[in-house]
Structures are given as C-alpha cells and as structure tokens.
C-alpha cells in the first residue's frame, strides 16, 4: 500500500476517529495525538491491512484502544468528555439566548454521560453521535449485535433519566 492508497483507504476515516477519540480524551490536542498514533501504527502495518474485513471498523477499534491506553498512561480513568472543546456548533446568526441554551444542553449531556460505563458511552457515541449500524459497532467494539443493542438501550435509558432529573432540577 503506497502513500496515495493509504490516504484514500485509511485517511478518509480520520475525522470519525477524531470524533470517537474526543469522547475519551479531554482535549483536542490529546485526541489529535491519539489519531496520529493510530495512523502511524496503521502505516507501519500497511502491508497486512488488506486482510482486514472492514478497514473503518479496524481504525475505530485501534482508536478506542489507543485512547484507553493514553488514559491509563496518564493515570486517568475514563470519563466521557463529549464537550470539552470549545467548538461552536451554533451558527453565526444564533441569538445569545440560543447560544446559552445550546451550551446548557451540552452541559447536561456531558454530566449525564460522565456517570455511564465506558462501553455504554462508546456504543451511544458510535450510534447516536456518529450514526453507525449495530453490526458496525459490534465489529468496532468486539461485541455481538445483541450486546450492542443492550448497551445502547441502557445508555439511552440512563441518559434520559439523568437528563430528566437535570431539567427538572434546572426548571424547579
């Protein structure tokens, strides 16, 4: 696999890998380092990559493993960090009230996700934030379709409960 082929077949997943890494790491720079490390590993093993069934699934698997390794090396435990970065999702036309409301919503999601187990956050992120199918998520995380469904169901249920509490508390 030469450089062009690598760019066409592997590098196209880099943003998905970055988004997934962002759900583990606590900064843009750390997530970027994870993606770079994963791509370096893929480049080093590029001659054996043809045997992989799904390149995308393999990229995401390595991203998850690398992120967990990085957290372990730093002596940190997994806590979802879905919005640790100051990206500005709201359009330039958004009113200050809208921006504030969006930020509040993100804070609620962040705090709700923080208490969930890693597998639930991973399945939830891959499905609800990145739109992968159950089969693809199963390949990425080494789970059966049923296990993926169970994890997503539990994640959504817990998330709804936590969000409801937060909204009730916020409105009360």
């Amino acid at each position: 696999m030469d450089r062009n082929e690598f760019a066409n077949k592997i590098m196209k997943y880099k943003d998905n890998m970055y988004r997934f890494a962002m759900s583990y790491m606590h900064s843009e720079a750390e997530a970027q380092d994870v993606v770079q490390d994963v791509l370096m590993k893929l480049w080093e093993t590029r001659y054996s990559l043809e045997q992989k069934k799904s390149m995308e699934a393999w990229c995401m698997t390595l991203t998850r493993n690398k992120s967990l390794d990085a957290l372990k090396r730093a002596g940190r435990k997994f806590t979802s960090s879905i919005d640790h970065v100051n990206h500005n999702p709201t359009s330039e036309n958004s009113s200050p009230l809208q921006v504030y409301s969006d930020k509040e919503s993100m804070n609620h999601i962040k705090s709700a996700l923080q208490s969930l187990p890693e597998k639930q956050v991973a399945t939830f992120t891959l499905r609800d934030m990145q739109g992968y199918s159950y089969l693809e998520i199963g390949d990425m995380l080494g789970l059966s379709i049923d296990q993926v469904k169970v994890n997503i169901h539990r994640a959504r249920k817990a998330l709804k409960k936590k969000l409801s509490t937060e909204y009730a508390y916020g409105n009360g």
């Binding site: 943003d15 970055y18 988004r19 962002m22 879905i82 919005d83 970065v85 990206h87 500005n88 999702p89 969006d102 919503s105 993100m106 999601i109 992120t125 609800d128 934030m129 990145q130």
Partner: peptide, 8 residues
C-alpha cells in the same frame, strides 16, 4: 450534541 460532534 450530535450536531456539535458533527463539527469536530
């Protein structure tokens, strides 16, 4: 949140 993450 999905919309935000799409922009990462």
């Amino acid at each position: 949140a999905k919309n935000t993450i799409d922009n990462y």
